[in-house]
């Protein structure tokens, strides 16, 4: 009788645990993860390779050991336009300290991007995501979105919306190699 009771308690506990676990797992997947779908802080940043305006290939994993400041933008995006000069100024400061900027344009023409960059004298590499595959891999919705990648290749922050110069400095500091 005692073992029967023990078995019963064990069975009931097991069944309840399995079902509560399944519910918790569903809620986790459906509610919490949905916000950023595949991409989360702490994840390994998905590798990509894009070509810049000078024809040079930039592969994210080639910058391992450096921090990478990946900024998604478009010429029509007003906040992007405001933060670009600030980013460029800080790029001059931090590029020798091991922080790289990759500005990823979303599928615009070479002409528009080149014209835009030349008018503003931007010095950091600007690459064009021609078929939006990088945008898809990073699940980018609003522009601008900035992804901070640390020297180990992990995402440390996902920033949507405009950044002030102080923000940019603190982000650069965050991903600067030791």
């Amino acid at each position: 009788m005692a073992t029967k009771k023990k078995n019963r308690l064990f069975m009931r506990t097991a069944i309840l645990l399995v079902m509560v676990g399944a519910i918790a797992f569903t809620i986790y997947n459906g509610v919490i993860k949905e916000k950023n779908e595949l991409l989360q802080v702490g994840d390994q940043a998905p590798d990509f390779a894009l070509t810049d305006l000078n024809g040079d290939r930039h592969q994210l994993s080639d910058y391992k050991g450096q921090g990478v400041f990946v900024n998604f933008w478009g010429t029509w995006c007003k906040p992007c336009e405001k933060e670009f000069p600030l980013m460029d100024r800080q790029y001059q400061v931090y590029k020798d300290q091991g922080v790289q900027i990759l500005a990823v344009n979303i599928a615009q023409s070479d002409y528009e991007v080149r014209q835009y960059a030349e008018q503003r004298n931007l010095t950091f590499p600007i690459v064009i995501d021609k078929d939006k595959s990088v945008m898809e891999a990073y699940n980018i919705r609003p522009l601008p979105t900035t992804i901070l990648v640390n020297p180990e290749g992990k995402i440390t922050k996902i920033i949507t919306g405009e950044m002030s110069e102080e923000d940019i400095v603190s982000y650069m500091e965050e991903i600067k190699p030791e």
């Binding site: 079902m19 519910i23 809620i27 459906g30």
Partner: peptide, 13 residues
């Protein structure tokens, strides 16, 4: 929403 999923889960239980 988490509570709706939780309710469906309770129905399953």
């Amino acid at each position: 929403s988490y509570w709706f999923i939780a309710l469906v889960g309770m129905l399953a239980i």
